[in-house]
Design a protein around this nucleic acid. Sequence first.
DNA 1: TTTATTTTTGAACACCGTTCACAATAAATA
DNA 2: TATTTATTGTGAACGGTGTTCAAAAATAAA
Lengths: 225, 225
Amino acid sequence: MIDLLLKINPEGEEFMARRKDHTHDEIREQALNVLMTHLEEAPADATSLRQIARQIGYSPGTLINIFGSYDQLLLSANARTLDLLASDLQNISKEYACPLSRLKAFACSYLRFAEQYNYQWQLLFQHRLPEEESVPEWQLQRINDLFAIIEQALSELATTVPESDLQQASRTIWASVHGICSLSLDDKLFAGSQTYGESMLDSLISHYVSDWRAQYNEPSQAIKG
Amino acid sequence: MIDLLLKINPEGEEFMARRKDHTHDEIREQALNVLMTHLEEAPADATSLRQIARQIGYSPGTLINIFGSYDQLLLSANARTLDLLASDLQNISKEYACPLSRLKAFACSYLRFAEQYNYQWQLLFQHRLPEEESVPEWQLQRINDLFAIIEQALSELATTVPESDLQQASRTIWASVHGICSLSLDDKLFAGSQTYGESMLDSLISHYVSDWRAQYNEPSQAIKG
DNA sequence: TTTATTTTTGAACACCGTTCACAATAAATA
DNA sequence: TATTTATTGTGAACGGTGTTCAAAAATAAA
């Protein structure tokens, strides 16, 4: 049998199909590193499964074996991005005792992250899952952790607020902040870099929170409303 | 001449390369109609230049000749969508004398549009231009017209406001509304359709505007930062 | 009718994600 | 150790993509 093979493939020629000394986890790691590095200076559309495979010295099929599909490779990159973002926001938030400052710092960090990791951020939010495939568990968990930061700050600003109100307010703020960042990035034409987005974030949080807390902290006056 | 054709193309067989009785404008129209119809029930990724060409009975090259590229065909569809959205919002806004109600109706219409024309809306905002190709003129114009509606409402709520403040506030509101709609669409899992998004929009506008106008209408008190 | 011009084409190109029989390797067995 | 079995990675193939372009077809001009 070996003779037969040797006859068919007589020499040198660099045989492929050689099993490399990498575990699946190592290949995962390599592929994700290559992708994340790519995203540091070009959008996701500018690479491909084949390119990534070529760069780590494996065939496209191998990556499909490991990740299931190219979509899921992209999704794994999103997991990394979200982890980065979450730890960023959590660290920043820890540094602020004042809940209002904390909220603003949270929003600004979000914007800064979106600017710095532009293409990762784009992929994270623009990437649509095929069909009605549900958002993965870990992603919901990370997102909930981020909501918790906002909820915590809000609850410090206004005591005795029903949980459901806290949820709605924190979601409203998060979605608004997200929208401002999203629009701010597309709009590089108009505004001079981040100062514009930052002032919008400040405006949003100042005005929204100010009136929102008044609703709970000064129920007797009832001026606003 | 007719005889010649009949001889060359003796029957059925449907020869191609026959110059059809359509002007370029008509072909544009047909292609866009096919695309927009497709977007009524499937995302943009689910079709292609070739599919659209096939459906209108022309070759892919013809569409490239007319539109320049597939990207620009998609962009033309976005023009249509934006026109639809703009006229929708303008009509709705006309019906409300009260500026606050007008703002809320504006936001709700925006959300309803995003829900009804889901895939068109997705394409409109998720589609990234290649390179740093600038947003086309007409698109900026349409968007400015929409800002004008918000600015107008805000100026009715608070007189003697500097133009720059009006601009910032209207942009902040629009970006926030956009973010809420954007997130609300992705979140079909969580919420029971539109009621959730609507209440977030209401919360956003109520609180933000309430505090924002207080800044200008009650300058003597100076309670708010 | 012949010539020149415009329009549309279809084949070709270089890609893409995904599948799969089988070659190359490692592990288990005799 | 030699042989069988199981796993892992491959490369060719499939059907798709957007885009280019020589030439065919249809029209307009001479």
